[in-house]
Design a protein around this nucleic acid. Structure first.
Length: 114
DNA sequence: CTGATGACGGCGC
DNA sequence: TGCGCCGCCATCA
């Protein structure tokens, strides 16, 4: 590697965490920030997504911690996100994703009584 | 430098 | 269950 290698910026780590979301899976802003090594920066994740211009970025898999679409109901972004989630087989009810967040799923699996 | 804003989160009532 | 307030942090006016 180049000797001038610099540490990844917070923005890059956040984008990487979003790209790491598997198809048909969703996560909250706080969860993404946490995975990026930036606990408490949920708002920073939101700002990055709002300024991102990468068509390959699965931003539609990022929701609020309660599983709701972050955009105002009825807005173009709101409809677009639901449209994309539906395309991945994720069911959405009145702006609410009908499935547990990725982090909750992993946590539930870990704590499951088996 | 100070104050306001935002694709948020958590807790209290 | 729903609503409101406060906390966190980076960016903007």
């Amino acid at each position: 590697m180049l000797p001038t290698a610099s540490p990844p910026t917070s923005e890059q780590r956040i984008l990487a965490a979003v790209r790491a979301l598997p198809y048909g899976q969703v996560a909250g802003y706080g969860a993404i920030a946490r995975r990026a090594g930036l606990p408490g920066r949920a708002r920073m994740v939101a700002r990055i997504l709002g300024h991102n211009n990468d068509p390959d970025l699965p931003w539609h898999r990022v929701l609020r911690s309660d599983g709701r679409i972050a955009f105002p109901a009825g807005s173009s972004g709101w409809e677009e996100q639901i449209r994309r989630l539906h395309a991945e087989g994720v069911q959405v009810n009145n702006g609410k994703v009908c499935m547990p967040l990725a982090e909750d799923t992993l946590d539930a699996a870990f704590w499951a009584p088996r």
